[in-house]
């Protein structure tokens, strides 16, 4: 079975059954916006959400996490590995792409055991998009409007039903356990589905665009552009853009002792390249002293280094950074200006 069908009315029951064996994380309403949150009441889940305040990365790579406990008596430290069985439910393709990019970093040549354990215990249920979810989306430009892997199950809205694309064995097992909630897909269903993908999804118009052609070279050639100062002067160095980014991953590691100074714990926290102390080293020298240099660094890392190293930018076009920036810095505007458009 690759395709199945579930009526929208059966989703709460499906969620309830998932909750029996998993912590279910899904979009819920928060002050008129949406947030991914562990849920216990299926009625609270809002699959009609546009985007969330924070991306789902917080459940694989939390803002603050304890890595280990240690004693100063020379004994071995005790690592903290989170093996909670978790379902990330209703992720849009851009956020699934975001997790794939985190995989390259945390689960590549040098696997990170903390991330890896969470990822291994996480089941991802996607929710397909067939048009921009809000005015900030530019996933079409970033090639993240569709996603071919990185999920276990994909839900595709089709009238009163969701067509269900089962991608992995883990996804298949979950569906099989609740097979009474799913029905077979008819030839007509697949016809409608493919028609929808072509007519609706592929013809959708995105107002917001980012031209990614030769983006790595573009950045090389515009290194000295006054555009960086123009936007850098506006930057508040608040870090909002990178904290709401599905694939910003820079972190800091810090040891904390108790008052006896004998026992402690090592913690990892999100960090951000826009902070003044990010590249400040012992002795006080700062490699990226001014805001323009730091802002430039952020885009060089995400849209150039990632292209050079992994073949694509570390941006999934979710638009969260544009929405979140208190100084209204818009990366699509920066890149348009760099191109002289």
């Amino acid at each position: 079975m690759i395709l199945a069908k579930i009526s929208k009315g059966n989703i709460p029951e499906f969620l309830k059954r998932l909750m029996a064996s998993y912590e279910v994380v899904a979009p819920v309403e928060k002050e008129g916006k949406f947030a991914f949150s562990p849920v216990s009441d299926p009625a609270k889940v809002r699959l009609d959400y546009d985007t969330t305040i924070l991306p789902p990365k917080q459940f694989l790579y939390p803002p603050e996490e304890k890595l280990m406990e240690f004693k100063r008596d020379g004994s071995a430290g005790k690592e903290t590995i989170d093996t909670t069985k978790r379902v990330l439910f209703g992720l849009h393709p851009c956020d699934i792409w975001g997790i794939q990019i985190l995989d390259w970093v945390f689960d590549g040549k040098f696997p990170d055991p903390y991330y890896r354990a969470r990822k291994d215990n996480t089941l991802i249920v996607g929710l397909n998009c067939t048009s921009p979810r809000n005015e900030y989306c530019f996933c079409q430009s970033m090639g993240t409007y569709t996603v071919d892997k990185g999920y276990d199950i994909m839900l595709m809205e089709e009238g009163d039903n969701y067509m269900v694309h089962i991608k992995t064995d883990a996804g298949n097992q979950v569906i099989r356990k609740s097979s009474d909630l799913f029905t077979e897909v008819s030839a007509e269903d697949t016809n409608i589905l493919s028609k929808d993908l072509v007519d609706k999804k592929m013809k959708a118009k995105f107002k917001r665009k980012l031209d990614t052609r030769n983006i790595s070279e573009l950045l090389d050639f515009t290194y000295g552009s006054p555009v960086w100062k123009e936007f850098g002067d506006r930057c508040l160095s608040c870090g909002a853009c990178s904290y709401v980014c599905p694939d910003c991953y820079c972190f800091n590691v810090k040891d904390k002792l108790d008052l006896s100074l004998q026992n402690g714990e090592r913690a990892r926290t999100w960090d951000c390249c826009l902070y003044i102390d990010f590249a400040r080293c012992a002795g006080g020298h700062n490699f990226r002293k001014d805001k323009a240099t730091r802002l430039k660094m952020r885009f060089f890392h995400k849209e150039k280094s990632f292209v050079d190293d992994y073949g694509r930018p570390a941006c999934v076009g979710c638009g969260r950074c544009i929405k979140a920036c208190p100084a209204k810095i818009d990366l699509t505007e920066i890149f348009a200006k760099l191109r002289g458009v």
């Binding site: 928060k30 803002p63 608040c238 870090g239 926290t269 999100w270 951000c272 102390d277």
Partner: peptide, 17 residues
């Protein structure tokens, strides 16, 4: 004491700006 703005903690807490 980290020279970061309150936004750092606020965003980590998942608040609406």
């Amino acid at each position: 004491i980290k020279p970061h703005a309150v936004c750092e903690e606020c965003r980590k807490n998942g608040n609406v700006c």
